[in-house]
Design a protein around this nucleic acid. Structure first.
Lengths: 398, 398
DNA sequence: TCTATTAGTTGATGCGTGTAACTATATGAG
DNA sequence: CTCATATAGTTACACGCATCAACTAATAGA
């Protein structure tokens, strides 16, 4: 509705000229295209972005000046003047990434191309938010002090798996730690650099779009299965937050499994059958895992060919696919990216995909891919909020 | 990603200058604001849209010239020059609306403020698409010939309730008529004026945003319960279509009711317990309605205080709320608009809302409202596609 | 009647595009 | 070796838009 800004800064004077928006948009387009599509010449950039070569020349000049781009060796591929490939140089800018997990905290340094430069993990008991603060300060100090010299730290970007309201930077709810309405400003260290905080799965979505299997995609859904379950939806290139950051809840999708009853009063909710812990505990109950055995061990047993283990995993994968199939019908995304430890098992992915395709009206048209971030997913995802923002205005960021 | 257009017109030359986009955007903003927020003076428009008064003056001048706006009587409300209220004049532009229902076709004339100028209804047997064509031609001719003189007909805008792919103007599937992959170009009359075709519920969403209870809202979901069930999601002011227009499917959301089995192999799917026909038939089975009784009759019986009828209606409302509650968790909309005949019963709305709020993690924060289009909903909704498009570029539309 | 106040208009300015003519640097034919 | 051709990239200029600031218009109240 608003002509220039999206409804923010309602009262105050417009701070910037309209043409500035245009310039920024084109700069962002060029930077993002080079991030996602790799080295390109000016002429090709102009082609893809429907800009004139003149505009690209000027935009590129600015990006070269700030050192975000580098010119490669001219390549003569056909008649005519050789093209000069432009490459995004990620080496000089990075983000401190913080992830608050159920059992450990991860602090890392991630460059703007999504490459993890450093990562530290700290086991912790996060049940008391006030205790976490000191641990984070220490972790950040470690990562910062060992930071590669010459790397400019853009800021801190953090995530947690539960329900996060990014507008107030509050953890509304995170069950694995028992958190409710925890204001993150008091937990995250304040180093006077930009800080961002949002929900893990939304970070995965941004990261997959910038660096991962959803590179350059504008319309997809991410499903995360781990200590928590969650979804994130990207529409027209923008990740959806929903009211109070509440979008992405999938824990009470009905699976039809007659399992343990959920705290909500119903039975068979996805959240009580498909989390890492639910699967692990069921493996114990069925005698597949010895008491205290881990999910990784279970996946190993599956890989070794144990039929009972495989059956359990496929059963849960099918429950996941069956439950989220209704979301595919509602949302009809072009692509669904699944992420989380269990999804790394080929049996899980196959069973999930088959079931989802069978259940959804769209059928096999929906592309299903597995995230390739592996164990680094939380660190990359946490960094993605600030990196995404950086690429929306690379020149005058901060 | 694209700098100016949203990825369309990839190959061809840019047809318009960038500044044109800006101008169009501002014109559209002004027109839409006046449509939604009623008469406003230039100064107030400038305030709300963060534009300068100079820009508003020039934009308004263009809209006055084409006759889309009229100036009201100057009102002196305080010291200073009196403000001149600007009113959108809907009287001169209208859209031919066509809706293909399960049992009847509706053809109407709807002006750009959503007012239904004419409406004709034709009972039909739509099982053979080729038969519908002649009926539509006749209906359109009727509406057109009686059109108010001086009204400019912008084009034809049509909808059907099933699964529609608007990019190919194809009815992928519409169960009540048994249609599959019906190309609409061959069914809709071709009068040489613009034609649009999309899914009913998406039209309801656009209409509610422009003229209805979601006026000016940018983030909401519409749930339709009638001969078909469907949802539509508006995010950042744009209605979502999804892959192949497949978004909005809610017929296979599990309700937990042990009802008739669905064609999909499961039982208790929303589509077999909550449609008009499902409720009507169940009312018959329970002896509430005599054979052949209509849903309207059932609603009358409920209104008269019959407990069994009321129980049935509330049971189905709760199923609807319970099933769609998972969508509220996934999508977290600010507002849910419910529409369709059954939702007009206060008992239905109350039971639905209570259950949705109970089931969703967001709780009662989600605003639930009932559509106020009543019986005219399909006609207004069908017209909304073209009207929405008109307001995106009111000056140079066609 | 004069001042304060608010609405609306107008001409100059600025900004970032697009346009088109330019330079730069290659291939390949003769 | 030279010249036509082709493509990449640059630059001077013009255009269209919104902004800015100064203006006019029209009222209330002292």
């Amino acid at each position: 509705m608003n002509a220039r800004h999206s409804g923010f800064r309602s009262g105050d004077r417009p701070a910037l000229a309209v043409s500035d928006d245009l310039r920024r948009g084109n700069i962002a387009s060029v930077a993002r295209t080079l991030l996602v599509e790799g080295p390109l010449a000016r002429a090709e950039l102009a082609e893809r972005l429907s800009l004139t070569r003149a505009t690209v020349t000027r935009v590129v000049a600015q990006l070269l000046e700030v050192g975000l781009l580098t010119e490669g060796e001219a390549r003569r591929v056909t008649a005519g003047r050789p093209m000069i490939p432009l490459r995004l140089d990620p080496s000089a800018r990075a983000v401190i990434s913080i992830h608050l997990g159920a059992f450990e905290v991860r602090v890392g340094l991630v460059d703007i191309s999504g490459h993890v430069l450093r990562e530290e993990r700290f086991s912790y008991d996060g049940s008391r938010p006030e205790d976490v603060s000191a641990l984070l300060a220490h972790g950040v100090e470690q990562v910062r002090s060992h930071a590669v010299p010459g790397v400019r730290v853009l800021g801190m970007s953090a995530s947690i798996g539960g329900w996060v309201d990014p507008t107030s930077s509050t953890v509304v709810r995170y069950d694995p730690l028992g958190w409710q309405d925890v204001p993150l400003r008091e937990v995250l260290p304040d180093l006077g650099i930009p800080r961002r905080f949002d929900q893990l799965v939304r970070g995965v979505a941004l990261a997959e779009r910038m660096f991962g299997v959803a590179r350059g995609r504008e319309d997809f859904v991410v499903l995360w299965s781990g200590n928590i379950l969650g979804a994130a939806s990207v529409a027209r290139g923008v990740v959806q937050h929903g009211l109070r950051g509440g979008a992405g809840g999938i824990e009470h999708l009905p699976t039809g499994l007659p399992d343990d009853s959920c705290a909500c009063g119903r039975t068979g909710c996805l959240g009580v059958v498909a989390t890492d812990e639910a699967i692990r505990r069921e493996a114990e109950a069925r005698g597949i895992l010895r008491p205290g055995g881990s999910l990784s061990t279970l996946l190993g047993i599956v890989a070794d060919g144990d039929p009972a283990a495989r059956q359990l995993l496929e059963e849960r994968a099918e429950a996941f696919g069956s439950a989220t199939g209704v979301l595919a019908d509602f949302r009809a995304p072009e692509l669904i990216v699944v992420a989380g430890l269990v999804t790394t098992a080929p049996e899980y992915l196959a069973a999930f995909t088959a079931r989802l395709h069978a259940v959804s009206a769209l059928g096999a048209v929906v592309d299903v891919r597995r995230s390739e971030f592996g164990d680094l997913a939380p660190t990359i995802a946490s960094a993605a909020f600030l990196i995404d923002e950086y690429f929306r205005d690379p020149i005058s960021f901060e």
